[in-house]
Amino acid sequence: MFLQLKKTDIGYKTPLIKGVETSLKLGEVCLLIGNNGVGKTTLIKSILNQIPVLDGEIFLNKKNIKILSSKEIAEQVAIVFSKSQVPANYTLKDLISLGKYIHYPYYFELNDSDRQEVDEIIESLNLNQYKDFQLQKLSDGNLQKAFIGRALAQNSPFIILDEPTTHLDEENKIIILKLLRNLAKKQNKLILFSSHDWRLAKEFSDKIWLVNDGKLDAGITEEILLKHHEILSPRLFQVNENFIPPQIVGPDLEKEMLYSFLQKNFKKNLSHLKVEFKDVFWEVSNDYFQEKCASFEEIAHLIENHH
């Protein structure tokens, strides 16, 4: 596991979140949700060792954060804030290049390899046509992608984003969220991001950290949400054009969660399957088999083994 919190109390003088016991690995996307004031930002600052934990320990790449310097943490973790200050007179390429300077004193110049990597990041974000634009002339969506590009230029295995889709329309939110998921899966990065627009964001996250009543509930996105009916009202988002769902039979909430989970993990036609909720298990069937599954992971494993 790349990030581990062991019996951790998070807060200032008194705990906001008590007894956190959870972990995340490279390649995972984790969505951090909770009401305002419950301690989400404090939790992020604690992971960065900007605020000392009140009790317990936090490990980053198997090292206790207490023994890591600020530079060592910056090499492991890149940060993207929702309201980042936009530097005056900087172009998009200038901003992304800034990510390289955590590796050098400020007076160094980037070498050819660095500049090539910055160009490749700009290309991968589909920002080539804007690379010489002043930051003030970029749309909100492209500006946010530029700040993500700066984080990528750090070459850190772990990226934390605070409300990365704030003030974006739904189309640009989906673009950013798809980008984050692709980064995690294709470049094996750990992504932890907070969002108030979690109903859409859940479609792209593997795990959820839900801060509620002074505790952190962590696990597979859909299974955490199924445990918390009080924050849900069913709604389906179609964000994966290559996904054709199976026939899903069950209550609206369970159907939504299964649809969300399958859409993230299977970019193919599953219409030959029927998946029915039977109160304590899911029954998965087609013309050739009928199996009982106790969890979403078991359903995914079954689908993989029958294809």
Rank of each mutant, 00 (worst) to 15 (best):
residue 30 C to T: 06
residue 243 F to W: 07
residue 140 D to T: 13
residue 21 E to F: 09
residue 280 V to F: 14
residue 81 F to H: 12
residue 140 D to E: 10
residue 104 Y to R: 13
residue 22 T to H: 09
residue 279 D to W: 13
residue 199 R to S: 12
residue 251 P to W: 04
residue 121 I to E: 03
residue 278 K to F: 06
residue 114 D to K: 00
residue 280 V to Q: 15
residue 29 V to N: 02
residue 282 W to N: 02
residue 157 P to V: 06
residue 258 L to I: 07
residue 207 K to A: 03
residue 129 Q to M: 15
residue 244 I to Q: 02
residue 51 I to Y: 08
residue 208 I to G: 05
residue 220 I to K: 11
residue 36 N to Q: 07
residue 27 G to P: 01
residue 210 L to H: 05
residue 83 K to R: 15
residue 150 R to V: 04
residue 150 R to P: 07
residue 228 H to T: 11
residue 175 I to R: 10
residue 30 C to G: 09
residue 185 K to L: 05
residue 164 P to K: 01
residue 42 T to V: 10
residue 181 R to P: 06
residue 127 L to G: 03
residue 222 E to A: 08
residue 166 T to K: 10
residue 263 Q to A: 09
residue 128 N to S: 13
residue 271 S to D: 05
residue 216 L to F: 01
residue 83 K to E: 15
residue 116 Q to V: 12
residue 257 M to R: 06
residue 24 L to R: 07
residue 49 N to Q: 10
residue 150 R to D: 05
residue 5 L to F: 04
residue 240 N to P: 12
residue 191 I to T: 03
residue 67 I to Q: 13
residue 211 V to Y: 00
residue 78 A to H: 00
residue 284 V to F: 02
residue 99 G to P: 04
residue 127 L to V: 01
residue 194 S to N: 04
residue 200 L to H: 07
residue 212 N to G: 12
residue 183 L to M: 06
residue 42 T to P: 00
residue 263 Q to G: 08
residue 102 I to H: 01
residue 95 L to M: 08
residue 270 L to D: 04
residue 181 R to F: 12
residue 82 S to N: 05
residue 208 I to P: 05
residue 252 D to K: 14
residue 275 V to T: 01
residue 276 E to G: 09
residue 166 T to F: 12
residue 58 I to C: 02
residue 286 N to I: 07
residue 217 D to S: 15
residue 90 Y to V: 00
residue 28 E to Q: 11
residue 27 G to Y: 02
residue 123 E to I: 14
residue 262 L to D: 02
residue 282 W to R: 09
residue 212 N to T: 14
residue 142 N to P: 04
residue 178 K to W: 11
residue 139 S to G: 07
residue 143 L to E: 05
residue 271 S to R: 12
residue 149 G to T: 00
residue 95 L to C: 07
residue 25 K to P: 04
residue 6 K to N: 15
residue 133 F to L: 09
residue 64 N to E: 10
residue 179 L to C: 08
residue 168 L to D: 03
residue 16 L to F: 07
residue 180 L to I: 01
residue 99 G to T: 06
residue 39 G to D: 03
residue 6 K to Q: 14
residue 83 K to W: 13
residue 42 T to Q: 06
residue 52 P to L: 00
residue 2 F to Q: 02
residue 182 N to T: 13
residue 189 K to G: 02
residue 285 S to K: 02
residue 202 K to I: 12
residue 85 Q to H: 15
residue 299 I to D: 03
residue 196 H to V: 09
residue 248 I to Q: 02
residue 16 L to Y: 01
residue 60 L to E: 05
residue 275 V to A: 09
residue 121 I to A: 04
residue 237 F to P: 00
residue 157 P to K: 08
residue 303 I to M: 10
residue 74 A to G: 06
residue 110 L to W: 03
residue 209 W to N: 05
residue 156 S to P: 01
residue 158 F to M: 05
residue 153 A to R: 03
residue 100 K to M: 02
residue 250 G to H: 03
residue 248 I to T: 02
residue 195 S to V: 00
residue 182 N to V: 12
residue 172 N to F: 09
residue 287 D to C: 11
residue 139 S to H: 09
residue 45 K to E: 06
residue 112 D to S: 15
residue 210 L to E: 04
residue 33 I to T: 03
residue 59 F to T: 03
residue 82 S to P: 04
residue 114 D to E: 05
residue 72 E to W: 01
residue 67 I to E: 15
residue 233 S to R: 15
residue 245 P to A: 02
residue 232 L to Y: 13
